[in-house]
């Protein structure tokens, strides 16, 4: 449904192959030298980590199927990056990666719920975070993901800004820091990206032709 840049192995729930500290440090170096594939690989590391935590949260502790994205990212951060000597430049850098992973997680979660189709609320995805709980229709989440994918094809940076702000819950200065652009640019990109997404999935998406 959307292009998946990751090797399949990286997406298995129990994969541990990138969990090693050396891998992360090496990938971070690669990334800082401009290797985009390294970024993707980092995302998959964080994604795996997030999935494991989420799995535990959803199966073990929470009955309401609500993903607490903030808690997930925070826990993942402590696990992967919070300790000294892990090579992450700062929290924002980690969050940029985690935001992308979080988007993937939410979308996969939505897909699974759609496939399960159990019970009345199975077609909804709920997650909470900095901005309170969001209860979204599964189809909507998938439509947003689609729109994001197309946006990313046109302008990679708009996509990154949305991921950081929307999925990662990062503030403007944090996003600016992570993407190495000015706060003003983040604000402008956000306004544009939001407009495009709104146009794509907003209330008027099904426009009757006059």
């Amino acid at each position: 449904m959307f292009p998946n840049p990751l090797p399949n192995a990286a997406r298995t729930m129990d994969s541990r192959q990138f969990d090693g500290d050396d891998d992360v440090t090496g990938l971070l170096e690669e990334w800082s030298r401009g290797n985009d594939a390294a970024f993707d690989a980092l995302v998959s590391v964080v994604y795996d980590n997030l999935c494991r935590i989420a799995h535990r949260h959803l199966i073990g502790e929470r009955a309401d199927h609500t993903l607490d994205t903030q808690a997930l990212v925070h826990e993942s951060y402590l696990h992967l990056a919070g300790k000294p000597g892990k090579g992450w430049r700062n929290r924002a850098q980690f969050f940029a990666v985690a935001s992308k992973a979080m988007r993937r997680l939410l979308v996969d979660h939505a897909r699974r719920r759609k496939a399960e189709k159990r019970g009345g609320d199975a077609t909804r995805v709920t997650w909470s975070g900095d901005f309170g709980a969001t209860d979204a229709d599964v189809e909507e989440v998938l439509a947003l993901d689609d729109a994001l994918e197309r946006l990313g094809e046109r302008d990679q940076r708009l996509l990154q800004v949305v991921e950081c702000r929307f999925f990662g819950g990062m503030t403007v200065p944090e996003t600016a820091n992570a993407l190495d652009i000015s706060s003003r640019s983040v604000e402008r990109d956000w306004a544009r990206a939001r407009t495009y997404l709104y146009q794509a999935i907003g209330p008027r998406k099904a426009e009757p032709q006059g």
């Binding site: 901005f131 979204a136 229709d137 909507e140 947003l144 939001r194 997404l197 999935i201």
Partner: peptide, 8 residues
């Protein structure tokens, strides 16, 4: 939609 509300 809450999703759109959050986006907006």
């Amino acid at each position: 939609s809450q999703l759109i509300a959050r986006l907006c």
